[in-house]
């Protein structure tokens, strides 16, 4: 158990809640996605707040009475490096402090599809423990398996599946060959271009 000594989180009134803020809801850290002010001309004001629970990834909408407050969450994104996977856990090191963390695959989730050993990433820490991994927006990875394309086809139309060295499968143009490096956008899992080492 981690004891917070002398650390007091701030409370935010519903009218201070902005998109991107991180707050505690039902004891879970949550990311605010939107905050809609609902007020009848002569009636009670409410705030309809949409948020993503950062522990389970679920998006929820909940209404608060205007003026009620939410506790800020101790959340920080820090630069880190993915070190290795020991078969049961993924191991990371925070660049600035050299502090190492082990995470189970459920928490690494899809981020694991884009990282090989020594890859840079961001770690989301909640009360000092890792909550999520964010891969870089773009990564360069090698194709380990794909059907041979038709030589001379540079149209890019159609495409074919290609398996990458991390296990991810992306759609690539027909002219891209096994063994080549490609650049992929990790936010949508789409092929961007061929790449050099």
């Amino acid at each position: 158990m981690r004891i917070l000594m002398g650390v007091e989180m701030a409370f935010f009134s519903t009218n201070e809640i902005r998109n991107g803020m991180k707050v505690m809801i039902d004891n879970d850290p949550c990311l605010i996605l939107s905050n809609e002010y609902v007020k009848p001309g002569k009636g009670q004001a409410f705030n309809r707040i949409k948020y993503r629970n950062l522990k389970n990834g679920r998006t929820v909408e909940r209404t608060y009475k205007s003026g009620d407050s939410l506790e800020g969450a101790d959340i920080a994104d820090v630069e880190a490096q993915y070190l290795y996977n020991d078969g049961s856990h993924w191991h990371f090191m925070v660049k600035e402090t050299f502090e190492q963390f082990a995470m189970d695959p459920d928490h690494v989730a899809d981020a694991g599809l884009w990282m090989k050993e020594q890859s840079d990433c961001m770690l989301t820490l909640w009360n000092g423990s890792p909550l999520a991994v964010i891969p870089p927006n773009f990564v360069v990875l090698k194709i380990v398996e794909t059907d041979p394309g038709v030589r001379g086809d540079t149209s890019g139309g159609g495409g074919k599946p290609a398996k990458l060295e991390t296990g991810a499968v992306v759609r690539v143009p027909l002219f891209v060959q096994q063994g080549e490096l490609i650049k992929v956008d990790t936010r949508n899992g789409e092929y961007v271009s061929r790449a050099k080492e």
Binding site: I25, G43, Q44, F46
Partner: peptide, 20 residues
């Protein structure tokens, strides 16, 4: 309504139901 909080007045509950 997914509502977190308390309201004391009957009108405030009517407003919650009406707006949502």
């Amino acid at each position: 309504v997914e509502f977190s909080g308390e309201l004391s007045d009957i009108n405030d509950w009517l407003d919650l139901l009406f707006t949502h």
